[in-house]
Write a protein that binds this DNA or RNA. Structure first.
Length: 380
RNA sequence: GGACGGGUGGGUGAGUGGUUAAAACCAGCAGACUGUAAAUCUGCCGCUCCUUGCGGGCUACGGAGGUUCGAAUCCUCCCCCGUCCA
């Protein structure tokens, strides 16, 4: 039985083309994964996501554990069946919530004690518990619980977080190997990914990467980046890590990013990314276009009859004007959020298709340079 | 005709003698958003001048006049609006 990830080709620039087989379909890489934290990509139906060509979605361990609860989801036949999503799902472990819910949690070597943001109740998430929950959810790709810290952080603090992440990775893998066969929703092809930490310290990143690779995970993620550090550091840390990751395993840069960041990541050999930007920004009136960002709530679009992006083939751009989308946003109409999200995700997924096509042609560097130039041109 | 209540910045609406250009909210203008506590958050929001500073000037709480060192706040008259009584 071959390994589920097939590394098809590396472009002269270093960009990789691949395909990852999951129990719920193939993922063409480099891939962008829309975030559906609570079992929904806010604003879009699963049908629309399928039409957009989404091959894999994110779900969140912490949020689904709190509500509606992983046992309920298990009883409902797993997350795929529960949310009526036939394609692949990657569940984040709750590691990011260690970072984003900083004032509601306490981290120890054993795990993370959270006070629920919903009702204040205390919950204790351990690496084992995080895997157990993700197995119950039936995720195609599970993530180990990691300690994601803020930027800036001292070398000492970053080293401690990386060490703890490594320890948790070992525990996660042990638990995963021992329990996946007996998990009610289990599938032998479920995969667990390890996570590299190390903040913005190259030596810690290298050490973290080397150690995590020894554990032989199905894929490797780079966490703790794009949390406020300068973009140059994001690129540098990504490059440090990917240079040490095995070529035959998928690399996942967590939480990235803007279109420019995606181009950077792919150039550094990243295969998978996820980010809330296209969906969250859509709800906040920020639309992505080939020529950069367009803030639809700006008064200048009040009577603009043009589509958001005149070169975009998406159903929103083919049908609606900027003036109408601005009206919907200003009037706080739900459809505004829906259409904005639809457009933004189309833009991201189309960007990924173009990236894969460019890599296949061996022209990624030229493509990226052109795309960057366009993104910086500004919306007319 | 009479009795009450009320008229505040684009709107709603606090304030009832002294850092009050005037709370708060809404509207409006702009910005942020990177493994989602986010359809959220932040800033600005009378006019004007400059050496852009917790800077200067002007205008402003229905209208006119008055009391006072000082009034959106007190007094007088007038004009509107609402409720009730005839």
């Amino acid at each position: 039985m071959g390994f589920p990830f097939e590394h098809l080709k590396t472009d002269p620039s270093g960009a990789r083309l691949g395909r990852l087989e999951t129990p719920h379909g193939v993922i063409d890489t480099p891939a962008f994964m829309p975030v559906g934290t609570a079992g929904t990509v806010k604003g879009l139906t699963q049908q629309t996501l399928e039409e957009l060509g989404v091959q894999i979605l994110l779900g969140n361990t912490y949020h689904l554990f709190l509500r509606p609860g992983h046992e309920l989801i298990r009883q409902q036949g797993g997350l795929h069946q529960f949310m009526a999503w036939p394609r692949a799902i990657l569940t984040d472990s709750g590691g990011y919530q260690v970072f984003s819910l900083a004032d509601l949690r306490k981290v120890t070597d054993e795990g993370v004690r959270f006070r629920s943001h919903l009702d204040g109740a205390e919950h204790f998430l351990t690496p084992e518990k995080a895997v157990e929950i993700q197995l119950a959810l039936g995720a195609d790709i599970l993530m180990v619980l990691d300690e994601c810290i803020e930027y800036p952080a001292s070398h000492e603090r970053a080293a401690a977080a990386a060490a703890r992440t490594q320890d948790w990775a070992r525990r996660s893998l042990d638990f995963f190997l021992a329990n996946r066969a007996s998990a009610a929703i289990g599938d032998p092809r479920q995969m667990l990914f390890g996570i590299v930490q190390g903040n913005t310290y190259a030596d810690l990143r290298r050490e973290s990467a080397d150690q995590i690779v020894e554990l032989d995970f199905a894929g490797y993620a780079i966490g703790g980046l794009a949390v406020g550090e300068p973009p140059a550091l994001t690129r540098e840390m990504t490059a440090e890590v990917t240079a040490r990751l095995p070529a035959d395993r998928p690399r996942y840069l967590m939480g990235v990013g803007f279109p420019e960041d995606i181009l950077d990541a792919v150039a550094n050999g990243i295969d998978m990314m996820d980010c809330v930007l296209p969906t969250r920004n859509a709800r906040n009136g920020c639309l992505f276009t080939r020529r950069g960002r367009l803030v639809i709530k700006n008064a200048r679009y009040a009577s603009d009859p043009r589509p958001v992006d005149e070169s975009c083939e998406c159903p929103v751009c083919r049908r609606y004007s900027r003036a109408y989308l601005r009206h919907l946003f200003m009037a706080n109409e739900i459809l505004g959020a829906v259409l904005n999200t639809h457009h933004n995700l189309y833009f991201y997924l189309e960007l990924m298709r173009q990236i894969r096509s460019a890599i296949a042609r061996g022209e990624f560097a030229a493509f990226a340079a052109g795309a960057r130039e366009q993104l910086g041109a500004g919306v007319e």
